[in-house]
Simulated assay, not measured.
Amino acid sequence: MPPSTTSADARRPLGGRPRDPQIDDAILTAVRDLLAEDGYARLSFETVARRAGVTRPTIYRRWPSKAHLVHQAVFPARDADVLIPDTGDFAADVRRMIGDTVASYERPEARAALPGLLTDLHQDPGLRAAVIDGLENRVRGQFRALLEAAVARGAVRAEVDPEVLFDAVLGAVFTRAVRGVTMPGAFVDALTALVVDGAAPRP
C-alpha cells in the first residue's frame, strides 16, 4: 500500500522541487494590492512580479493565465468540504450564506477584479470552466442540499427551484458589487427575507 499523499506532495511539480508557499503568498498578496490600487486592466504578470519580488516565469509556472491568478487571489478555494452548512434553521443558514457572499464581494480587490475577470471568462468558455465552474458547481450542490433538507422539514415548498433561488441571491449581490453600491446589514436582512418568505409554504 503506497504512503498517503500530503498537502506538500500535492503541490510538488512532477520531477521538481515542492512549491514554496511563501512565494505563492507574496504573489497573491501583490495581486490583491495591485487590484485595489490600479484595477484589473492595468494588472499584468510584469507588475505582479515586480511587486512580489519574483520573476515572471515564477508566476507562469504556477498560474497559466491572468484570470487563473486573479481568481485564486480574490476568491481562493476553501479546503472545507462544507461551504454552506445546514444547521436545521433555513432562515439562519440563508442569512449566513448571503452574509458570507456579501463579505467576499465587498472587498476592494473583488470589486476591482469582477468586471474585467468576467469579461475574460465570458470570451473563453474553456477558461471559465477551468477557473470557476468547479467551485460554483460545488456551492450550488450544497445549496440544493440545503433546500432539499428544508423541504423535508416543511420549511420550503417542494416546487421551489434551487437554481433560481441561488441565482437570485448571487445576482443581487453581484449587481451591487459591480455598481460599487454598499451592502449593509439591512441589505442582507432584506434579501434573506425575500428568499425565505418567497420559498415558504403558502397558507
Rank of each mutant, 00 (worst) to 15 (best):
A67L: 05
A73G: 02
A177D: 04
F166Y: 15
R51E: 04
A30K: 12
V173E: 01
Q123K: 13
V164N: 03
I132S: 15
V160F: 01
L69C: 03
F174W: 11
A130N: 08
R42T: 11
A145Y: 01
P3N: 10
D81N: 08
H68L: 11
R51I: 00
R179E: 13
Q72W: 04
G141R: 00
G171E: 00
E148R: 14
Y60G: 09
V131M: 06
T55S: 15
T5N: 08
D9G: 14
S65A: 13
T5V: 15
V169Y: 00
R56L: 03
M97T: 10
F45C: 12
V94H: 06
P64Y: 10
G180M: 03
V70A: 03
E136D: 13
A77I: 09
A199W: 06
D20N: 15
P108C: 08
L117T: 02
A149L: 12
P201R: 12
T29P: 02
R12V: 10
L83C: 02
G180L: 03
A67W: 02
E109T: 03
D167N: 14
D25Q: 14
P13L: 08
E106D: 14
V181F: 09
E159I: 03
F75R: 10
V173M: 00
D25P: 00
T55K: 13
V196Q: 10
G198S: 08
V54A: 06
V195Y: 04
R107K: 14
S7T: 13
I84H: 00
I98H: 08
A155N: 07
T101H: 06
L43P: 04
R42L: 14
H68F: 14
A10N: 05
A77F: 09
P76V: 11
R12D: 06
P21K: 10
L127G: 07
R107I: 02
